[in-house]
Amino acid sequence: MLSLDSSSIASVALSRDGEVLSRFDTVDTRSHAEALAPAVHDLMAEAGLTGTDLDAVLVGTGPGPFTGLRAGLVTGRTLGFAWALPVHGVCSLDAAAFHVAPEALAAGHAEFVVVTDARRKELYRRDYRVHEDELGPVITPLGDPRVGPPEDVPALPCYGSGAGLYPDRLSHAVPGFSDLHPSAADLARAAWAITSRGQELSTDTSPLYLRDSDAKVPASPKRATR
């Protein structure tokens, strides 16, 4: 499976049965349209794979800043079309939640929240419950992903790259996870956690924008005379 996420950093991963074979992750959060296609090309070439070797494409559907998020989604959808592969979508925050699930279990955090930077002094967030079965940690989202000010984040242990951004306004951050961005590698692992338990992945790759465009229907035009 080829996975892509562009909700925060831009990342690509190749995996088989949840095992990540190779991965690419940018450091910055503003080069998605430049970085993704070369990364896909390089990972595929290094692994000696072509599109016919893949079973599916997986994309993180956000939430994330709009332009970067679209770059990942259009890349994933287009690769799926060109290679005639199914394209699956998973909420990007689920990737980060799956990543921290072992730590959350170890810390006794049966419920926690993952937050990432939504810019404009707001955070994207989603609440999760975590437990463990014979296959490993299982995360269950508690409701839909949301966007809002730090004060709106529920008083649960708070993981992720957004947790430390507003220390004065969000006091329940779990320290040590400031570089935890949703990644394609974790997305692939989170997806395997679903399919290995006999459940289907969604084929809905609609972007989780969570905000409308800023455009306002204009009232009367500005006056040229007073």
């Binding site: 896909v40 770059a71 259009v74 690769l79 060109a82």
Partner: peptide
Amino acid sequence: LAGALMVGVAAAKALAVAT
């Protein structure tokens, strides 16, 4: 428009990689 261009450019690159 930057955001609009970005969609076509990312998609075109994906087509180029795939083909």
